[in-house]
Write a protein that binds this DNA or RNA. Sequence first.
RNA 1: GCCCACGUGGCGGAAUUGGCAGACGCGCUAGAUUCAGGUUCUAGUGAGUAACAUCAUACAGGUUCAAGUCCUGUCGUGGGCACCA
Length: 1003
Amino acid sequence: MSGRRQYPFHLIEPKWQKAWDEQQAFRAFNPGEEIPANHPFAERHKLSGKVSAAQLPAKFYILDMFPYPSGAGLHVGHPEGYTATDILARYKRAQGFNVLHPMGWDAFGLPAEQYAVKTGQHPRKTTEENIATFKRQIQSLGFSYDWSRELATTDTGYFKWTQWIFLKLYNSYFDPELKKAQPIKFLEDALSHSPKFKKQWESNSYLEKIHKTWVEMPERITANQGNKFRSNVIENSRLAYVSEQPVWWCEQLGTVLANEEVVDGKSEVGGFPVVRKPMRQWMLRITAYAEKLLQDLDTIDWSDSLKEMQRNWIGRSEGAQISFRAENPRSPSNPKHYFSIDVFTTRPDTLFGATYLVLSPEHTFVSHLTTDAQRTAIESYKIEVARKSDLERTELAKEKTGVFTGSYATNPVNNEKIPIWIADYVLASYGTGAIMAVPAHDERDWDFAKKYGLPITPVVALFSKVFSPFTKVGSDTAGKQTQHLVINGKEQQVQVYYECCVPEEGFAVNSSNDEVSLNGLPTVDAKKKIIDWLNSHESHELGFGMVNYKLRDWLFSRQRYWGEPFPIVWKIGPDGESYHEALPESSLPVLPPTLEDYKPTATGEPPLARAKDWVNLPDGSVRETNTMPQWAGSCWYYLRYLDAKNNSAFVGKDVENYWMGANSCKSQVESCKLDDAQKPSTFNLQPSTSTPGVDLYVGGTEHAVLHLLYARFWHKVLFDLGYVSTPEPFFKLVNQGMVLGEDNQKMSKSRGNVIPVDVPVAEVGTDALRLYEMFMGPLEMVKPWNTKGVEGVYRFLGRVWRLFVDEKSETEFQQAETTAETQRRGELLNLIKLNYSIQNVAATSAQLKTLHSCIKKVTEDLDGLRFNTAISAMMVFVNDAITWETKPVSVLRDFLILLQPFAPHIAEELWQKLSANSQLPSANLAYASWPKFDAALLVESEIEIPVQVNGKLRDVIKVSVNATQADLGTAAKNSEKVKPFIEGKTIKKIIVVPKKMVNLIVG
RNA sequence: GCCCACGUGGCGGAAUUGGCAGACGCGCUAGAUUCAGGUUCUAGUGAGUAACAUCAUACAGGUUCAAGUCCUGUCGUGGGCACCA
């Protein structure tokens, strides 16, 4: 930046940051906390001493997604969201809310661990250094965070409670009857003979069923078998459980990864290849919450695109599970030896068209169903598939491949024998890992059937009158056939396709047996009818209607050092098998051991296994050596902020209820479901009320399906168990758009287009940086950085400065500054005086009009998160006010309150000067009341009305605001500019929109 | 391939319910201040014309007294999902 400094921001900004810090100006007070009488919050709300929740003003919780403190520091893209939340926090504070605006560190993570592997420096040291850099930079931006609540996920006082929540998950199950998490104790009680727990299972049909199975177990089973059954039921119900199953293993990272962390067959971090490998892992049963996570999206105010991403990830589909019997090729004559192959389909109406089955190559039945003749082919295909990475399977495998097992299954609707194949286009991980192929109505099955010469039976037809029979087929008409069907009592002509067609709305044909006929039914009804038919069979032997989810359980263990250790030990039971046991809450936190080497062991065990003394406990039990993933700490940090120092609970109950509860909120407590009238319009904050949960959460879209789904899941479990007050954590969420480099590319080191925040802070000050972050464009939009644009808002602040200060005194200040010692320069700001045009006089009506249209615009725009237009409204105000010969103090004070959220340092400095000058009390500007917009001041006696002739603008006329429609019409016709366009023509019609415009229609 | 957004000056972007297109800022032009550069201030700035007229919100249609805004189609950009049965 070249040229003269617009105003002494280099002295003003540190001055006020220091003052806020010393005063703890932005500390938020919890119910029951002591509020110092001289705190500006106490002065504003006339409070002091210990104050109850009922005495405190309404809360407003504004949250940023806390950053991972990397070594690189902040660039100008980072503070965009932080600036937006800070502006709103300051705005809500001015409106009188008790604002909670905290910041912390998502501090566990791979980079610090990789650095430790390389250099031996403890990850904690690296992490602390990085936090120090981030904190210095964030503090230089003047955000009004309550630093007394600062936390890091790596603090022992924090992850103690992360481990505690894990124990809650471990000790809970999802009750299908109550549709909520319950203590595992209830389940244990149901698996007991003792009548003292009777109450528990009698009130719950699910527990009753479990109990019945238990007590009705044949007496001849051994105690061991009984225990085994019992522990199986329990272990299969825990929300945190151990599973040995194929997981994504990343060799380069030396750890397993969750599904969500694998993108295109590569690790999301680093882009390394991953392979499927069976391993013993901790899992969290997030699938139990699939339906709730989906449904409750309707109760929260998130962007449609974000909700859509979560919906896609959860991937609900309605359909049916259908069982196909296959005889055992080893004993074909024995009708008792058969396999029941379950498939999931969303199109059960096409069951009559299922002409073969396909299993995924990993399906457990494959080897059993393979005949001797096919064994070689099947085995080599399986090897070929296993060798392919997932990347190859998705990128290259558009050409379908597969092998016949040699076995046949029976289609339950028509008893036809259909061949069983394996193919890698069927995924092991979705549905049941097997499909019924309906080649006539599914493109994948069609391709496969064509390639291997499998039969194709069309079972869906289209109305020829409604649909063109050629739309899907192209020029080939050979594949269709006309049939006559009775539909709704009338005979209709339909087109039956003999090419693949996937109609959204068609009619079933060729679909009947002795018990059921779908023929003539529209697809929707055909689905219902066939599902009813399946459901009607004893014990759902043939199948049943069901809902399937794409969402899978959350893989929760990592083979890393720098994460939360599990509060779990392993023991050997009397049967010689190892089992796990939770450590008691009193043993928390479980601290990781100190290591000299942070690499995994040579045998591939996690790094923690190196610490033999730590792993082996005196009683012979062995610690779990996996650690939790980084997502664990970020699942609940927003709750810890509420009560960051609490040693006896993860959050105090009253405190949680004050900040997260619905007490201070007008919407219903019960479900948090808003009806239409209460639903806020998109991107609008509720102007006068707070909401249940976090009122506003701002962060990047990269967390759409990871953090945000996991955090909702944990919150729902905590809600079910009674630890939190709301079923959803984040009532309103906004994704800020990315800031691109000046070259319109995403900012990255390799492009060399990264602008560190320190650069603009040094050159134009943080107030100008904050202003520009918001002035670039709408918050949620992607936009490029432009240094010239920064200069524009910097100039605006210079104009604000000159609106207030006396030029001569500033020149004196500048001369004094060149000779003063650095430490004493701050005091020199006192040399700067206000200019003489600022006077304690009443404002003119024109001045009030300018002020109040600014108040109106800024207030409305802040409620709608339209920061860019709010700033432009303030520019309009200053452009006008700078021309005033006398500037009333009252008007300028109100303007500074409007400016304060955006550019707090310059606003405070000018506020201080203004207060001193006019002998007004210099209360902290951050707690000054937001000015109220007065509509009466904006009323004009005369307004300008555009006049159109045939829809084209011809003149703008001035009329009285009270002009009638007739007056307007007459005035329009009499306009000199309009006359040439209407002369000699007849006026057919006059359209008058009161107070808006006139349109003359001439012939 | 599927789903969802979005296309407005040289640039970033404004434009409640359809009602004066281009607020505000950048850039540019001219002038004033200055020894000069920078800064600041004043005026102008969609295209077009001497001035009107006229033409302009990706393109092509449509609805309407009136369309950037609503409807249909096409093209383009961005994001998400991707053999999900």
